[in-house]
Simulated assay, not measured.
Amino acid sequence: MAIAETAPAVTAPAAEAPRRAWAQRLGVIVPAGLVALVALACFLGPLVLPIPQPTGGNIVDAYLPSFSAGHLLGTDPNGNDILARILYGGRNSLTVAIAVNVIGMAIGGSFGALSAYFGGTTDMLIMRVFDVLIAFPSLVLILAVAQSLGPSRINTILALGFFSIPAMARIARAATLSLCEQPFMAAAKLCGTPTRRMLLRHIAPNVAPQLLTFSILGMGLIIVIEGALSFLGLGIAPPAPSWGNMISEGQASLSATPMLVIWPSLMLFVTVLAFNLLGDALRSRWSSR
């Protein structure tokens, strides 16, 4: 009697492709939506929600619990609304992260692209300067620069922005070197395309996506460092709110009112996680192309 053999089920590659594409899209959509939600809450929330200002609270209203009348997340020791301080603190943290990345992309990206395009002595001089900066322990130097400049939002941006330039320069240089080997770049040079047009028309649009992906990955790290500086009193100075200085102030009464630390810590965690997931998803999409 013949034994019927069952052929193993084979999943066709054509059926797998839509699933992979949908998984990739979902990997971008979910963290991007979370980032957009946090940004909208921090930048537009105080304008549309009936919440008080983050400073100038009444000491009589100090230590109100969560879900109190007029104070959804309660109040801090100074009677300030915690929800208002979280939203305004998130606005400060996101503003710092965006400004630092803009500085790094504009200055570091430009120098990195110019270094790779011209090569030779120009490349050696520019990259040796950046190599020296990268060789130093960045966190120690950031603390030193922040200490010397003093605690404020603009000084935090300058301190972090200065040290974001070398990393952006290396990313732009590597991308430009790879781009210069492409046939269309050689054809553009043979046609006598001016240097300015080569940089703006051919190099910048192709290098920008890689810089943007790297900057999104770095957003979470910058927010964490800004929070650490504010926690140490070297970042955004009270009474201006920041997630870092809210955690620092809340630790004094952690055992009695843990929510003073939990709420800003939770917002910091969710925001950093969203940026990291979004950056990883974008990097995977670009590397697969």
Score class of each variant (00 low, 15 high):
residue 8 P to H: 13
residue 172 A to F: 13
residue 234 L to K: 09
residue 184 F to K: 03
residue 41 A to W: 02
residue 272 V to D: 11
residue 128 R to C: 10
residue 241 P to Y: 06
residue 145 V to E: 05
residue 124 M to C: 12
residue 125 L to D: 05
residue 215 S to K: 10
residue 260 L to H: 07
residue 284 S to A: 14
residue 134 I to Q: 10
residue 133 L to Q: 11
residue 83 L to H: 02
residue 55 T to M: 12
residue 69 A to F: 12
residue 231 F to Y: 12
residue 97 A to Q: 02
residue 266 L to H: 01
residue 49 L to E: 01
residue 14 A to E: 14
residue 180 C to I: 14
residue 80 N to G: 09
residue 24 Q to Y: 12
residue 130 F to H: 03
residue 251 Q to M: 13
residue 57 G to E: 03
residue 33 G to H: 05
residue 147 Q to C: 07
residue 11 T to H: 08
residue 106 A to W: 02
residue 185 M to T: 00
residue 102 V to P: 04
residue 261 V to K: 04
residue 27 G to D: 11
residue 45 G to M: 03
residue 226 E to V: 03
residue 158 L to F: 03
residue 183 P to N: 10
residue 248 S to D: 11
residue 115 S to E: 07
residue 109 G to C: 04
residue 111 F to L: 14
residue 124 M to S: 14
residue 172 A to M: 10
residue 46 P to K: 10
residue 38 V to D: 05
residue 62 A to R: 15
residue 210 Q to D: 10
residue 142 I to C: 02
residue 51 I to L: 11
residue 228 A to C: 04
residue 282 L to C: 01
residue 155 N to Y: 11
residue 201 R to P: 12
residue 100 V to Q: 04
residue 241 P to N: 09
residue 103 I to F: 04
residue 71 H to T: 01
residue 68 S to Y: 10
residue 206 N to E: 06
residue 242 S to V: 02
residue 277 L to Y: 13
residue 77 P to I: 07
residue 13 P to I: 03
residue 167 A to V: 12
residue 149 L to H: 08
residue 122 T to F: 15
residue 272 V to I: 08
residue 152 S to F: 06
residue 288 S to V: 06
residue 36 A to V: 05
residue 104 G to T: 09
residue 95 T to D: 08
residue 43 F to S: 08
residue 247 I to F: 04
residue 177 L to H: 06
residue 7 A to I: 15
residue 6 T to H: 15
residue 226 E to M: 11
residue 160 L to D: 00
residue 261 V to S: 01
residue 35 V to D: 06
residue 171 I to N: 01
residue 104 G to E: 04
residue 73 L to C: 00
residue 118 F to R: 00
residue 20 R to T: 03
residue 70 G to R: 06
residue 142 I to T: 10
residue 23 A to W: 06
residue 253 S to Q: 12
residue 236 I to E: 00
residue 101 N to G: 04
residue 207 V to A: 07
residue 11 T to K: 13
residue 204 A to Q: 13
residue 237 A to V: 02
residue 287 S to P: 04
residue 155 N to A: 00
residue 109 G to A: 01
residue 58 N to P: 07
residue 166 P to E: 01
residue 261 V to T: 02
residue 269 F to I: 15
residue 93 S to M: 07
residue 13 P to G: 04
residue 143 L to Q: 04
residue 274 A to Q: 05
residue 125 L to R: 12
residue 108 G to M: 06
residue 255 S to A: 15
residue 242 S to K: 05
residue 132 V to Q: 00
residue 51 I to R: 02
residue 90 G to M: 00
residue 219 M to L: 08
residue 89 G to P: 01
residue 99 A to H: 03
residue 264 P to D: 03
residue 213 T to Y: 11
residue 57 G to Q: 09
residue 254 L to C: 07
residue 227 G to C: 09
residue 110 S to P: 05
residue 23 A to G: 06
residue 88 Y to L: 13
residue 87 L to S: 06
residue 278 L to I: 07
residue 81 D to H: 13
residue 274 A to G: 01
residue 105 M to Y: 01
residue 170 R to I: 11
residue 284 S to E: 15
residue 78 N to M: 15
residue 253 S to C: 06
residue 282 L to W: 08
residue 220 G to N: 08
residue 60 V to P: 05
residue 4 A to D: 14
